[in-house]
């Protein structure tokens, strides 16, 4: 694949190294001559000096034949514009943007960026994953349609304790899929399943309904 990386900072540098090792053709774009020189010294002719948001630079970089463009600068607006110009002006099939403000993830997607990576959220996900007592853990985000797979632990405070699933006021698009209860085999959740304290539920939920689902099952705001 031919991959263009916009931004030759730390992220761009190690990304470039890793992608080269995987056998891809890689080109890094950076405005800073000194940064480009560092690439030249360490990895050969893989960096071109120029503004990756400028159509002229991207044309010179051969964006029209690029399979992927990854924008890694630490300015969200620059990453957005680089991805949009690549996508709409040069028809690059996949664009990825590093997003610094977590709130920009949804905005970027709405504005045509194919995938966003947000360090803050990544770290949060790991913290949650490392804490088994956390009432709700994100297992997987299906970015395309904004659906998440989460694991929720039913807590004492929850009004759901002792109730059948069909009687809960769950968000309309959320589905409880699997019930994991100590001492039992995991089982599929049906309308008649009655929840107990410390039950673990694997559920599918739209990102927007996540909070309502958590409140309902854990009793936590």
């Amino acid at each position: 694949m031919y991959i263009i990386i916009v931004g030759g900072g730390t992220v761009g540098y190690y990304l470039c190294e890793a992608l080269l090792n995987e056998g891809h053709e890689v080109l890094v774009l950076d405005k800073d001559a000194a940064k480009c020189e560092r690439f030249g010294d360490d990895m050969g002719s893989v960096c071109m000096r120029g503004d990756g948001c400028e159509a002229a630079t991207l044309a010179q970089a051969g964006a029209a034949r690029a399979d992927v463009l990854i924008a890694t600068t630490d300015e969200d607006e620059d990453n957005l514009v680089a991805c949009q110009v690549a996508k709409y002006e040069f028809g690059v099939a996949r664009t990825l943007a590093r997003v610094n403000n977590p709130k920009n993830e949804m905005i970027f997607k709405k504005l045509g960026v194919d995938r966003t990576i947000n360090v803050t959220n990544l770290i949060l996900d790991h913290i949650e994953g490392d804490l088994p007592t956390h009432p709700m853990v994100h297992l997987l985000t299906m970015m395309e349609d904004g659906t998440e797979i989460v694991e929720v632990r039913v807590r004492e405070k929850s009004t759901a304790v002792g109730k059948a699933v069909k009687d809960l006021s769950l968000p309309p698009d959320a589905v409880l899929v699997l019930l994991i209860r100590n001492g039992y085999k995991p089982q599929t959740v049906i309308g008649d399943t009655v929840l107990e304290v410390n039950d673990r539920i694997i559920a599918l939920t739209p990102t927007a309904a996540e909070d309502v689902l958590r409140k309902e099952l854990t009793g936590l705001d």
């Binding site: 948001c53 969200d76 607006e77 514009v81």
Partner: peptide, 30 residues
């Protein structure tokens, strides 16, 4: 900043549906 203007204008137009959005972009190609 051209890119700041572009991003803010798009947020105004597509996220907040402001009816009239205008922005300055120095770079003619952009």
């Amino acid at each position: 900043g051209d890119n700041r203007n572009i991003m803010a204008a798009q947020i105004a137009k597509h996220i907040f549906n402001v009816s009239r959005v205008l922005c300055r972009i120095y770079d003619p190609l952009r």
